[in-house]
Nucleic acid binder design. Structure first.
Length: 609
RNA sequence: UGCCCGAUAGUGUAAUGGUAGCACAAGUGACUCUGACUCACUUUGUCUAGGUUCGAAUCCUAGUCGGGCAGCCA
């Protein structure tokens, strides 16, 4: 039942995905351009991972996995102002969860205690290569098969490379402040101007840069810049900054540094140092690719060099996917935290009960292209239902109970009924549920004035109680105010399993629980967080928050549900898939989250069919 | 009004000069002790205009529309 991690055979059934990136990789493999395929997943630890990252994770780990390669989890932590250890921990947990049982054997390996310092400017350090058999060498850290990588572990190496760039006349120390730097840069349709400090001597640059590192200058006073082309039509080639001064400690590197490298300088070299063959990132970095190549080439590094390829981000409907916007929802308490089950964060999705395998299936089915698309969230929902339909046990639960009395069953009686745990199993197992005089049924399953084609219970009508028998509604009892008190019905006991009329057909079958044996539970019914398909495109997305994204009910459950664990996947028959909330449940207190409803072609907006 | 990228059913994605296919969504029906699942069937597409070619979604030209680029963020 625990089953975010299907048997390998299950995933082997799905054909290997194909896309333009995998074609490139396949060509490189065929041409033997790299010793092995190495990719990386490089989040900055400044927030929680979400569905968009899942796409990147599945692509990067997927490519590695398909070629017997590795994928490194690397923290792209070059900006100490934004990064926190809390995020590092959540990212490790989420990555581990998403790839478990699928690509965890591809996780890049770094020998424990390896010293990350540079060995030689022209030679690669040798610690990046993954072992042939990770299981034989791995030292679990936080449950991971390997230690994650940190860009900040390369600060020494990066500094040495910067010195080399200066020696080669390819970088200089610039004294322009941020504002003036921007002015000199020009605009997309207007050439920039050379910095007045562009032609300093190598000796002066070397001296100044070393003094920057030594802490002689305040934040922003100077920067190290590449010397490329201030007239380039590509803004990112107009002498972009390599290093800035920041007198703040780093969560991982400590207090050693007061100069920190920028993304464009650190990323390509980090890839290089780790032996990355294919560096996959999103489309907004297309313009940066020239800079990525420039750094590597102007350092004269030996080939093969890593190459950057870009793909379109995932943008699903009815949700928000940027860290910045999710952070806002968390801070403004629109949701309860980063792991709120309504959020598209991996921790939220996990808590909601969505299996990692369903997320993987979803991002794979969406494909990898260079087209900025809007993906219908229904594709995710389909993947979740398909996954859960196969693995969830069926149970009876009533969300909004009304009382029903079976007048021909006596008060102390309990008729055992056999119920199927999962009809999708090859050899389904069964359990017993008790039919008693008083039961609860769903209030939606009774209508005093039924709409057309209503298959459920109505006055004088018949319906089958699932796994039990057919009942007939004889009387609707109301109190003085007209409120429904109970339904009085007779049970046709000859329609029970093993009885002569078991095959008698009625149009409707409804779920129920014994009133005397039911256990109570808090059930959280989640719906989409936004009312419009593309809240991210709005100036103020808060105007489009769904006021009904969470509804809490006290439900009546069949007793077997009291034994549920957070790893279980359960279908409440006719209602949807549910999971125990791992945070708020406690012994004696059951809290269930609705993962997703069952498809309902009857109650669809637009009415009956 | 500089440079770069993109455009195939409602949505997403294949077709790599040779029959426009798949998934989701939507609809119809069958089945059903879950109005679920499953099964069958159906609707809907190459941005526009030229050109190359025996043949163009694919190649070329122009246009249209959309996205990206001017952080000492990543």
């Amino acid at each position: 039942m625990s089953a975010d991690h299907p048997a390998p055979s299950a995933s082997a059934a799905t054909p290997a995905p194909s896309d333009f990136i995998r074609e490139i990789v396949a060509q490189d493999v065929a041409a033997k351009r790299h010793e092995q395929i190495v990719t990386r997943f490089p989040p900055e630890p400044n927030g929680y991972l979400h569905l968009g990252h899942a796409k990147s994770i599945c692509l990067n780990f997927g490519v590695a996995r398909e070629h017997g390669g590795v994928c490194n989890l690397r923290f792209d932590d070059t900006n100490p102002a934004k990064e926190e250890i809390e995020y590092v921990e959540s990212i490790i947990t989420d990555v581990q969860w998403l790839i478990a049982g699928w690509a965890d054997h591809c996780l890049g390996f770094k020998p424990k205690g390896a010293h990350p310092a540079l060995q030689a400017v022209d030679g690669k350090p040798d610690y990046y290569l993954a072992p042939v058999d990770p299981s034989g060498l791995s030292v679990p850290v936080s449950g991971l098969a390997a230690e994650p990588f940190y860009a900040s572990d390369y600060f020494d190496a990066l500094y040495e490379y910067a010195l080399e760039l200066i020696r080669r006349g390819k970088a200089y120390v610039c004294d322009l402040n941020a504002e003036d730097t921007e002015k000199y840069r020009g605009a997309p349709d207007r050439s920039g101007q050379d910095s007045p400090f562009r032609n300093r001597s190598v000796a002066e640059n070397l001296d100044l840069f070393q003094r920057m590192k030594a802490g002689e200058f305040p934040d922003g006073a100077r920067s190290l810049r590449s010397k490329i082309d201030m007239a380039s039509p590509n803004m990112w080639l107009r002498d972009p900054l390599l290093y800035r001064i920041r007198h703040i400690p780093h969560y991982h590197a400590g207090a050693k540094w007061c100069i920190y490298p920028l993304y464009d300088y650190a990323h390509c070299l980090s890839d290089y140092l780790e032996g990355v063959s294919h560096s996959l990132c999103s489309l907004e970095f297309v313009a940066h690719r020239a800079l990525y190549d420039w750094v590597l080439e102007n350092l004269g590094l030996p080939r093969p060099l890593p190459h950057q390829y870009e793909f379109a981000k995932l943008v699903p409907t009815y949700t928000l996917l940027s860290k910045r916007n999710i952070l806002r929802l968390v801070q403004e308490k629109v949701v309860a935290g980063w792991d709120d089950p309504r959020l598209p964060t991996l921790s939220g999705l996990r808590r909601r009960g969505i299996p990692a395998s369903a997320i993987r299936q979803f991002v794979i089915s969406v494909g990898v292209t260079t087209f900025n698309s809007l993906t219908d969230i229904a594709v995710l929902e389909h993947a979740i239902r398909e996954d859960l339909n196969a693995k969830a046990v069926r149970r009876l639960a009533v969300l909004r109970p009304i009382k029903l009395v079976l007048t021909n069953i006596s008060a102390g009686e309990a008729l055992a009924c056999e119920a199927v745990n999962n009809p999708q199993d090859e050899t389904p197992t069964r359990r017993s549920v008790a039919l008693t005089r008083e039961v609860f049924i769903e209030s939606e399953d009774f209508a005093e004035v039924p709409p057309p084609k209503y298959f459920r219970l109505k006055p004088g009508g018949e319906v089958r109680l699932k796994y039990a028998c057919i009942i007939k509604c004889d009387e609707v009892v109301k109190d003085a105010s007209g409120q429904l008190v109970e339904l009085r019905c007779t049970a046709d006991l000859t329609t029970r399993a093993g009885e002569p009329n078991v095959d008698r057909k009625v149009k409707g079958t409804i779920h129920w629980v014994s009133a005397t044996q039911a256990v109570d539970a808090e059930v959280r019914l989640y719906d989409r967080l936004f009312t419009i398909p593309a809240p991210g495109a709005e100036e103020d997305f808060k105007k489009f928050i769904n006021p009904h994204s969470l509804e809490v009910v006290t439900a009546k459950l069949e007793p077997a549900l009291a034994q549920t664990t957070p790893d279980d996947r359960v279908q409440f028959e006719r209602l949807g898939y549910f999971t125990l909330d791992r945070k708020d449940s406690a012994p004696g207190r059951l809290v269930f989250n609705r993962t997703i409803t069952l498809k309902d072609t009857w109650a669809k907006p637009g009415g009956s069919k």
